[in-house]
Design a protein around this nucleic acid. Sequence first.
DNA 1: CATCGGACATGACAGGTATCATGTTCGAAT
DNA 2: ATTCGAACATGATACCTGTCATGTCCGATG
Lengths: 183, 183
Amino acid sequence: MIPVMSDDFVSAVVSRSGRRRRLDRGAFLFHRGDPVAAVFVVGRGSIELTRFQQGGRPIVLQRAGPGQLVAEASVYSAAYHCDGLAAEATVVHELPRAAFLDLLAGDPALFHSWAAHLAREVQSARVRSEVLSRHTVADRLDGWLTWTGGGLPARGQWRSVAAQIGVSPEALYRELAKRRRSS
Amino acid sequence: MIPVMSDDFVSAVVSRSGRRRRLDRGAFLFHRGDPVAAVFVVGRGSIELTRFQQGGRPIVLQRAGPGQLVAEASVYSAAYHCDGLAAEATVVHELPRAAFLDLLAGDPALFHSWAAHLAREVQSARVRSEVLSRHTVADRLDGWLTWTGGGLPARGQWRSVAAQIGVSPEALYRELAKRRRSS
DNA sequence: CATCGGACATGACAGGTATCATGTTCGAAT
DNA sequence: ATTCGAACATGATACCTGTCATGTCCGATG
């Protein structure tokens, strides 16, 4: 599959990436509190930014698929504020943070693209907030479907979707079963 | 009160702002779908980015106080994706979008500050997502208190807080009353 | 092919919140 | 001072979801 290169700087990062890292499903790319030393682009698989609340319930803050940057907002932070882990077998391209910032500083057009990308991330994160503010599983699933644009999630990813919309897997199973019956 | 000017470009916007707009409580600064023609900085009062879900329940996506930019992520968008309205009597400084972009393009240091600001907004929006993923009013209020850093909200703003954390005003009243009793 | 672990599935029950209803308080405007 | 509207406050009830328990399905592994 050809990765989606939606932004100029993504391909720039990949082409200058010195190192590739391979992660098994469930492996951590970084932990909360780790110093931010590099930026990553997903080549294959997916990385989920996750925060574990008291009680162990995970909430997925961002899901980065092929061709997408991971934790780009942390570039200006000293440490990660959440965990990054592979939702499946994943390969990421790695570029040291300093090299990334130099790259942006030396190319105004690229920098402009970077700012526009961050602005889209802000809006995306706010849409997720709007989904999470809904109170029923049906409403949240509808919001997720509208947001992702695609159809119903594929088997094997339902638990991940449940974590993204902040409901228990069982509640999502029930809602999906209800929709299967009524369709 | 001296407005908080946390970012270079905020004071730059204010100083070049050609126009001031005054809004009564509840007045709209812009509506969802309006073309994005300018950027705003709150001088006094506060602006809330709000989306109204089916049924009329409002969810506050961003709350901008004195010295803060409003809907900055929309600078790269054609139209607003939510409503902006004054939560109280408010004054905003207005700068045409083109002038704002020219300002950034002409000052690399300012542009860098702008990108860092957007990155912080992304993280801020994700923190809100984490708060909204909690399931009880008590947990959401705790998250709001941790996030805002300050103490309990002032009277007259409780309904706004309820909208920010996605619970009914009544539920927030009850939780606050419970904390008053047990303290 | 047998095993095994994780996801899918579903029923029962307890707990929390939205909603509706009904007052009360308080600040602003006259 | 009186009026008035909005926020604050609180009780009752229905609904929904989290949790626990139990069971099935299915792909990976040896």
